[in-house]
């Protein structure tokens, strides 16, 4: 039985990615009990460079990005007990901490900035695709019709609003919205959520 499941898994994921994914969830759970520093540093070595890249993309300079990476991962180390593997993948949980620290930083620099961003829901709710693997995600994105993939790219990688995308791609806002709607639907279905 165990053997069969392993075979299924390796058909669905690239084996190394699947293994890695499993590990990080388990590592977080393990860390809460073991407080094993060497184990934590494995997590650090994987996430720190990715978080830094994420923060630089958001607009942080190298130095600030690295500072926030430290803050994020220290907070991970201290909060492992509150991690619930049923509610979020390790990366979602960790990236969310980084995102919130980044928004906090923005608000400190500009205290009266209207920042509903601090109203992002905290981890009290369950994404429908808690088990999603980022390799599958990339495949799902690749399977979208080209225009929809482009719309998703502009939202996530370029941070553009619907109106800006409409201008960029010379199409009505209504079409931008319907394209994104369809793409979101397909991504959720392919990755295991419901539409």
């Amino acid at each position: 039985m165990v053997h069969l499941r392993l075979v299924e898994t390796s058909m669905e994921f690239k084996p190394d990615q699947a293994a890695q994914k499993q590990d990080f969830r388990l590592i977080l759970v393990d860390l809460a009990k073991s407080r094993d520093k060497q184990l934590f540093m494995q997590l650090y070595d994987y996430f720190a460079p990715r978080l830094k890249s994420f923060l630089v993309r958001k607009g942080a300079n190298e130095e600030l990005a690295e500072e926030l990476v430290q803050e994020t991962l220290l907070s991970v180390w201290r909060k492992t007990a509150s991690y619930d593997p049923a509610k979020a993948t390790a990366s979602t949980w960790i990236f969310r901490i980084a995102r919130n620290l980044w928004i906090d930083r923005l608000r400190k620099e500009k205290p009266d900035m209207l920042s509903p961003l601090n109203s992002y829901p905290e981890a009290g709710y369950t994404p429908s695709m808690a088990a999603c693997d980022s390799g599958r995600l990339k495949d799902a994105l690749g399977a979208l019709p080209q225009q929809q993939a482009q719309l998703v790219y502009k939202v996530y990688y370029e941070g553009k609003s619907h109106r800006e995308i409409a201008e960029d791609m010379d199409m009505p806002i209504g079409s931008v919205k319907s394209g994104l709607r369809l793409a979101f639907d397909k991504l959720r279905v392919r990755i295991g959520g419901e539409s």
């Binding site: 990715r50 890249s53 994420f54 993309r57 979020a88 993948t89 990366s91 979602t92 990236f95 969310r96 992002y120 994404p127 695709m129 808690a130 999603c132 693997d133 980022s134 390799g135 995600l137 990339k138 994105l141 996530y156 990688y157 991504l187 990755i191």
Partner: peptide
């Protein structure tokens, strides 16, 4: 959010 973090991770 999860889609975004998944993409960023790669």
């Amino acid at each position: 959010e999860q889609i975004g973090f998944g993409l960023m991770e790669q």
